[in-house]
Design a protein around this nucleic acid. Structure first.
Lengths: 215, 215
DNA sequence: AGACCGCATTTAACGGCGTTAATCTTGTCT
DNA sequence: AGACAAGATTAACGCCGTTAAATGCGGTCT
């Protein structure tokens, strides 16, 4: 095998214990390390140390540092999508659904700032090089598009390019999240309650623009 | 001298040529390197090489890698503020002024993506540790607050917490910029013209929400 | 049983990085 | 001339990502 192609590992002989394959073990350690020290302090060697394997072992399961980080980012998108899906199920009113989606995004950012940075930051240079990562991201974005589309059908959101409106909403909550976790709003947003309050207000502002017909 | 306190260097003997002191030379090289390779590929040793000095020379002028990057980030905020000030002078109508401020922000992001990342990213851990950096950032944000405040006075923007409205506007354009330069909108925004179009439309959306009275 | 093969991992090494300590140079002041 | 400090250098430490070569090791074929 030409190496790095596995990622799934060969399937266990069916009798073997459900012990996580080293690949999964590395992913878990990587996620923990990212959460602890951020994308900067992340080191492939430290991941290997935590998984109690040699420095070069990860290279059998991942093409390199970037591929391992891509796995972490993918995990992040899956978790974010799950949070968003939960909101979509719980809240059916289109207006409130959009608003709570925004708050959920900001809450995710506050709970997992380092993950968000890996998901969007420049550590992973070409997202298209990691198809499963791209797919996970698209799935999360798809939930937002769906919410906007539902709002349009219900007459609560203006007609027009659905994805473009979704990009606007995404940009707003993403920007707010970025500013918060990068400490740019520390005076104004010292704790999570303040962040949620601000997220709610800001989301409402955009929502008023979304309901009207654009010129 | 206990080192790293200079940053201004001693003043030239008045007859010496206006050759940039090594501190400035390093800053210039650092900015160029950041622009070329991004915050990831940035290396103190490479900066020293480009300035044709030894590896340890920068430590006389800057406390370390982070301090040098803080200088680059400060430069970025100054340039951004200049761009914004130009808009404020050129466009007097409050509505158009706000809109063009948003477009200018996105344009800056597209022109200097790596700078933006340094300005906001986690490479500089504590912005308060670099007071001149913080001041430069506040100055740029102040221009936005001023624009919102003018809009309120002119009756084009709803009353209410001015800074909070400014944060909303900032978040929107910052998020859009981040998504674009991180390649998240590559399908939708392949070139700069598309980016400006999108920025205009998105800014208008929020603006409609800003004009109305919030609940 | 014994030879063999391919997956999984280790050991060892290369070069680059940030940072620091010790050292040298150079110009200024007394 | 000699003291002195700013400014720069050399050399070293330990970390990093990555790669090549050597090693273990479970299953397969004869």
């Amino acid at each position: 095998m030409s190496r790095t192609a596995t990622r799934a590992g060969r399937r266990r002989p069916a009798n073997a214990p459900a012990v996580a394959s080293l690949g999964d073990e590395l992913l878990k350690a990587a996620a923990a390390l990212v959460a602890e020290r951020g994308p900067q302090g992340f080191s492939l060697r430290e991941v290997a140390r935590r998984a109690r394997v040699s420095e070069a072992a990860p290279y059998w399961h991942f093409a390199g540092k970037e591929a391992l980080l891509a796995g972490v980012a993918e995990e992040g998108f899956v978790a974010l999508a799950a949070l968003m899906a939960e909101v979509c199920e719980r809240v059916k009113d289109p207006d409130r659904q959009l608003q709570e989606l925004g708050v959920a995004y900001v809450r995710f950012a506050l709970a997992h700032p380092s993950h968000l940075r890996v998901m969007f930051g420049p550590e992973i240079r070409d997202k298209n090089a990691h198809p499963t990562l791209k797919a996970a991201g698209d799935r999360a974005f798809g939930l937002l598009v769906r919410a906007i589309s539902d709002g349009q059908r219900a007459g609560r959101v203006q007609q027009g390019d659905t994805e473009e409106l979704a990009v606007a909403a995404w940009a707003l909550v993403h920007g707010l999240s970025a500013l918060i976790i990068d400490g740019q709003l520390r005076r104004r947003v010292p704790n999570e309650r303040a962040a949620q309050r601000l997220a709610t207000k800001v989301t409402k502002l955009l929502q008023m623009g979304l309901t009207r017909q654009s010129s």
